[in-house]
Design a protein around this nucleic acid. Structure first.
Lengths: 285, 285
DNA sequence: TCAAAAGTGTTGGACCTACACCCATGT
DNA sequence: ACATGGGTGTAGGTCCAACACTTTTGA
């Protein structure tokens, strides 16, 4: 839509200096699925979901872990800012990403008012990345509470998210409260306790929720897998994210349409070789 | 997580004035479902999805239509800012809402660099609201293009969104391009032409997509319906949003679990009275 | 009487669950 | 030989699309 003459006149005189502006960061929750080797030569490695955290080099929260993020540069779009940050700080450029949510609570950063535009990134990289560590993710729900009214309901629960690697264990507890009264619905997520910087455990929680939800109705899981994989590998990834066990025979039939078999098989496994498959990306019309 | 002594020292000296900051707005796409009366005494009114647009009183885009929005006040959270804006400008407080997406393209506002944190609002209000008009939404997809590579695909289409009421018709065309190469996936939505302010037609498009997607796996549709409704009304709402026809008998069986019958019936309709139902909100455990 | 909507019944097929069963491998 | 994972088969149930059919009303 074109601007009018009146608009142009107005714009020549416009100054935004009189308005309050918040600082804005982009923050990337980087996830991958890793094979945890077992000692038993027969057993397959177990799949484990991991998040990449960076050790902060400057205050606030000096030496604490946080997700990758940066204040935005006004010369770039939000997506560009996020990509640049991830490239510079973590050293990766090849990943799936989507915007998650924009956090705008007033006290979420002790420096000043800061909005965080958060992203979820998925990669199938094996290597470690720059400036940080991969942490195993363990998530558990506790103290579930449920109340109903005539015109709605109230649900409350605690979510424990434990992030750990060989050297460190970070404990985090969130409180989630969903309330519905008539048409109004509110979801409040508050931090009970956290061992990582800012409200970044909330960003991680959002990413985990998004991933779990999208499993059902998208092909998002293949972004966490190598190009060639066995059906049991695929199944183990689903199980790790969903936190439930699936029936093997049924799983194979259900996912049959999503994958194409290759003429390759695993070897040296202490059990029957298994066929490798690739994601069949043409099911999205 | 508590701040260290070092952090506290740092914060005393901290000044954010040296950093670039963007302006930030919150913008609300307000939707409702309205009954369009037919002249035939036998026929039911048709359901029509509508969006509420405000006529701009100041430049830029003076006298054009836009969605409800405001620059944020740093004394409020994002959600609070949006609610205040909607209350003050439009006069409603009772609605379902969720955050949609944060837009950060560089030239999206002619004044200065502005981020938009957008929201989708759903209401079942019948009345007109302050400072604007309801517009019927018609959406049509054109010139679909599909290409496949060895490692991905490219999809392109044009989306025509026409917003109209008794006195005005606003034409808008978006171009949507989805590309996937290996793990990288990009979705680009660009404005081909628009009759409303800024990139607000994009916000409307996002809201419509979100609504359509959420129909399948949530109870979101009941936020657009009155408390008491007939099953045919419910079905017509689904059909209006999805843009397809559903089979009546099957629809009744499928939605049976979502609703509870009341001991009330419609009257004076020129056809058999129909039972009224209410949303059964206890299916979310 | 009739057009429109309300609502029920049925049939064949697709898909899902649960479980049993056999196959192939390296040590 | 055997533990482990790879992979197939099947019986019963559920759900779903498609279609036919009956009911009720106001003008």
């Amino acid at each position: 839509m074109k601007l009018s003459q009146e608009d142009k006149k107005f714009l020549e005189l416009y100054s935004d200096s009189e308005y309050d502006k918040p600082s804005v960061t982009v923050d990337a929750v980087i996830l991958r699925m890793i094979d945890k080797d077992t000692n038993n030569y027969r057993k397959l490695p177990q799949k484990k979901l991991q998040v990449f955290l960076l050790k902060r080099k400057y205050p606030p929260y000096l030496n604490c872990y946080s997700v990758a993020g940066t204040f935005i540069d006004l010369n770039y779009t939000l997506n560009e800012s996020m990509k640049l940050c991830v490239k510079n700080k973590v050293g990766i450029e090849n990943y799936y990403y989507e915007q998650l949510y924009t956090f705008g609570e007033k006290q979420r950063d002790p420096r000043t008012r800061v909005l965080s535009v958060s992203y979820m990134l998925l990669t199938n990289m094996e290597e470690n990345l720059f400036n940080g560590e991969w942490f195993d993710i363990n998530i558990e729900e506790k103290s579930f509470k449920y109340e109903t009214y005539q015109n709605g309901y109230l649900k409350e629960k605690d979510v424990e998210i434990t992030l750990s690697n060989e050297s460190e264990t970070l404990h985090n507890v969130l409180h989630v409260k969903v309330e519905k009264r008539d048409i109004k619905q509110t979801e409040e997520i508050s931090i009970v306790s956290t061992d990582i910087a800012f409200d970044h455990i909330k960003l991680i929680y959002y990413a985990l929720q998004r991933l779990k939800n999208k499993l059902e109705y998208t092909d998002i899981i293949f972004n966490l897998l190598p190009k060639k994989f066995t059906l049991t590998e695929l199944k183990n990834c689903y199980e790790e994210i969903l936190g439930t066990k699936l029936l093997d025979a049924n799983f194979r039939r259900k996912t049959a349409g999503l994958v194409s078999p290759l003429n390759e098989f695993t070897q040296d496994k202490g059990h029957r070789p298994s066929q490798l498959f690739k994601h069949n990306s043409l099911n999205n019309l």
